[in-house]
Simulated scan of single mutants.
Amino acid sequence: MLRALTRLSNAEVPGLNAGLCEVLGLDLNRLLDAPGERFEAPAVLDSLAGRPVQTHGDALEVLDELALHLYQALADHDFDLQATGEVLAHTLGERDNYGPLP
């Protein structure tokens, strides 16, 4: 249920997939507009997926997998806000900035 509620934006707050796209340098609207289109995925996306990401649809699938992983990891930490950085790093790799993600 939580994934469904955070998939879309809410007023000024971007949805989780949009936030993940910003962190990963992807354009969510372009992915959604042409899911069958082939594209050169960023290496980090292939690495996070553990497989080649060849189409926009593949990228959307990886975004859903990453969102699920984030929620599962947060649930493992009882949704403790103090664990957010650790969960983000574990899911998306160490970064200086996670953009709009907390």
Rank of each mutant, 00 (worst) to 15 (best):
R3L: 13
A4M: 14
L5W: 11
T6Q: 13
L8K: 14
L8W: 07
A11R: 14
V13W: 10
V13E: 13
V13N: 12
P14T: 03
G15K: 10
G15F: 11
L16V: 11
L16A: 02
C21P: 07
E22G: 14
E22I: 02
V23N: 03
V23D: 04
G25V: 00
G25N: 09
D27M: 00
D27H: 07
D27F: 04
L28T: 07
N29Q: 13
R30C: 10
R30A: 15
L31Q: 01
E37N: 11
E37C: 10
R38W: 05
R38H: 12
F39E: 07
E40Q: 13
A41V: 08
V44A: 12
V44H: 08
D46T: 02
A49F: 11
R51L: 02
P52A: 12
Q54R: 15
Q54A: 11
T55Q: 04
T55E: 08
H56Q: 07
H56N: 15
H56D: 06
G57Q: 06
D58S: 11
D58L: 03
D58K: 14
A59G: 10
E61W: 10
E61G: 13
L63S: 02
D64K: 11
E65A: 15
E65K: 12
A67W: 06
H69M: 03
Y71G: 03
L74F: 05
L74A: 11
A75L: 03
A75Y: 08
A75M: 00
A75G: 01
H77A: 11
D78Q: 09
D78S: 14
D80P: 05
D80T: 08
L81G: 12
L81Q: 13
L81Y: 00
A83Q: 12
A83D: 08
G85A: 10
G85I: 00
E86K: 13
V87M: 00
V87T: 02
A89K: 06
H90Q: 14
H90N: 12
H90E: 15
T91A: 01
T91L: 03
G93L: 04
E94S: 12
D96A: 14
D96F: 10
N97C: 09
N97D: 15
N97I: 00
Y98F: 06
Y98M: 02
G99S: 09
P100H: 13
L101V: 10
